[in-house]
Amino acid sequence: MKTPADPVRDYLRAVEREASALPADRRQELVADLAEHVEVTRAERPDATPGEILAELGDPRTIAATALAEAGRAPGIPAEGGAGDPARRGKVHPLVPLLMLTLSLPFVMVFSESPGPLFGLLFRIAGVVLLCTSVHWTTVRKTTGVLLAGVVPTVVIASWNLSSGGPAGDTPALVGNLGMLALMTGTAVWLWRSRRA
């Protein structure tokens, strides 16, 4: 059944349509606010026609554009941006690079057979890259972290392996590895504590 033309209903539908980019709850709240405004104004100014009241409210497009602009600046609504957006890069949880750096060594200690050390090295490199691109630390802290948890252990272990050539399982190698592990863990703990929110 077709109801007679209702300018208020048409107006509210136009607002809803123009504001389709808004989250549904915001859009419904906006339409409810405007509907309420019309009801209250009708009660207070019985002489005003719906057309007059709607004209005062303004163009649905303007209202929708304002609502979108207000939603864009509110916290909790993510800013627009693609995967390559610098604002999104580095949003990896701060634990990820720290764990990758620290765990790369015990991984190699456990899997010391052929592909193990390669994966360990890749793990460590990925950790360094994630640490450097993270938004959670200053450049100074990142540099210190890369040196202490990445470069120093890698150089020390590599030179140990090249000079002695001994199996990683004997006691001095184990002590050396544990020393490096302590250094990496300590650095990771320090980075974790000094991270920015």
């Binding site: 906006l30 405007l34 409210l57 303004g58 209202i63 304002t66 609502a67």
Partner: peptide
């Protein structure tokens, strides 16, 4: 435009 005050 009065309607723009409601989003605010």
């Amino acid at each position: 435009s009065q309607g723009t005050v409601y989003p605010l």
